[in-house]
């Protein structure tokens, strides 16, 4: 079941680079990362590629395969025809370091900008009580393996570098949603999502959801619910009035 496949891999660094063609052996059951590794071991020992788990769990091996953001370790070779040339390029929304490796520090910077979970001060460790149905929504978002494919595909920053300042990106919208839906988080994430993290720049075109290898429903379950929550506090005069009155009565 061994065959030879045509690969086209981007080689280069920040200064320059190009797509290079390789013919390389492929065995039954292999994924793109296996082939890249074989390339490393036999033809291009210095080919730079990031990977860790090879099981879709760590989110290291993100790249673009035939123009689509994907995990190399989860892209099976039998999804391509024998004749097809398989093009592998680095993530295009981030600065390239070398070959298939990009500088993803943007994402770590954004992570730092979102205030951490703030639990209730009166509960000591071991005293937290949460119902399963109340944690499930946030648990979906915590499946995120930080592959940053969603960040890479999001046109807001992919096509507009200048938006990186103001826009946290889908990975961090699910983080905000996770915290806002966390049954014991005490901070209000809604206004911040709109005013500090650029939620309004998302035009819900759903590319993030399309590429997420964890199948997190980023748009439907995080971004749109957050947009609705933002409307609650910022753009809905009736609810705004309601909350004022309720607060008054609560006194």
């Amino acid at each position: 079941m061994t065959r030879t496949a045509k690969f086209r891999v981007w080689r280069g660094d920040a200064s320059d680079g190009a797509l290079k063609d390789y013919n390389i052996e492929v065995n039954e059951g292999e994924v793109v990362l296996d082939v890249i590794h074989r390339l490393q071991a036999t033809q291009t020992p210095d080919l730079a590629v990031r990977w860790n788990c090879k099981a879709g769990k760590c989110g290291s091996c993100s790249a673009e395969i035939n123009g689509r953001p994907r995990l190399m370790c989860m892209t099976r070779m039998n999804t391509f025809t024998d004749e097809e040339t398989i093009t592998v390029t680095p993530l295009r929304a981030f600065p390239v370091i070398r070959d298939l490796v990009t500088n993803v520090s943007f994402n770590y910077k954004k992570a730092l900008e979102i205030p951490a979970f703030a639990g209730p001060a009166h509960l000591k460790p071991g005293e937290y009580r949460m119902e399963q149905i109340d944690v499930e929504r946030s648990q979906e978002f915590r499946k995120c393996i930080e592959c940053f494919l969603c960040q890479d595909t999001c046109h807001v920053i992919r096509d507009h570098e200048e938006n990186k300042e103001a826009f946290a990106g889908p990975r961090f919208f699910i983080r905000l949603a996770e915290l806002d839906m966390h049954p014991l988080d005490t901070l209000d994430r809604k206004r911040a999502a709109q005013e500090d993290h650029g939620l309004g720049m998302c035009n819900i075109t759903k590319c993030c959801t399309e590429v997420c290898p964890e199948h997190i429903k980023i748009t439907d379950n995080a971004i749109i619910p957050m947009k609705e929550r933002v409307v609650d506090v910022k753009y809905d005069p009736v609810r705004w009035l309601g909350s004022k009155i309720r607060r008054r009565e609560g006194l």
Binding site: A116, G119, P125, Y128, E131, Q132, V135, Q139, R142
Partner: peptide, 21 residues
């Protein structure tokens, strides 16, 4: 046990029992 409970105060969301533990 203390180490696990501490994780919860940092935001971990483990699966729950019926009593919410």
């Amino acid at each position: 046990p203390d180490r696990v409970w501490e994780l919860e105060t940092w935001g971990a969301l483990f699966d729950r029992t019926k009593e919410g533990k």
